[in-house]
Amino acid sequence: MDIMDEIRDLSRKYPDRRGALLPALYVVQKEAGWLSQEALDTVSRALNLPQATVKGVATFYAMYKHRPMGRHLIQLCTNVACMIMGAERLVDLISGRYGLEPGGTTDDGRFSLVIMECIGACDRAPAMLVDTDFHADLTADNIFEILEKYE
């Protein structure tokens, strides 16, 4: 199914086409890992929504990306519980090892690092999502063991 049809298909779950906007953005983001102007335009055409509207919505939500991302997206929580349990140390470690600042991408395009607000894993803090995989109880010892599995 081509992407336009896939998007239009999503709108069947909603009483109007616009309802499918958020899921449609996920669909196009899956292709390249981020939302280029072209990707936004595709959504705009598929759902017959003004381009500016699509952009306004897409930029409101933190999980839509507007710059190219690395092959793997490290989404590390540093909110209060994770902070108390040492998340900031992990940020430093990751930065040191991969030369990766929060918000940045490694030169080889392997990782992007994004600081998250609470991801609902405070009982097993610190925690992170790598792409859509959930990892918790992170420590200085196990963090790289986990990350190194992502090529």
């Binding site: 899921p23 929504l49 409101f60 933190a62």
Partner: peptide, 25 residues
């Protein structure tokens, strides 16, 4: 399921409704 995309405010019920409708929440 309608999946949010990283906006705490969308927990507030009217923002949530805007978000389901495909708007800025």
């Amino acid at each position: 399921v309608h999946q949010g995309a990283g906006a705490y405010i969308c927990g507030e019920e009217t923002a949530l409704i805007d978000s389901i409708e495909g708007r800025r929440g």
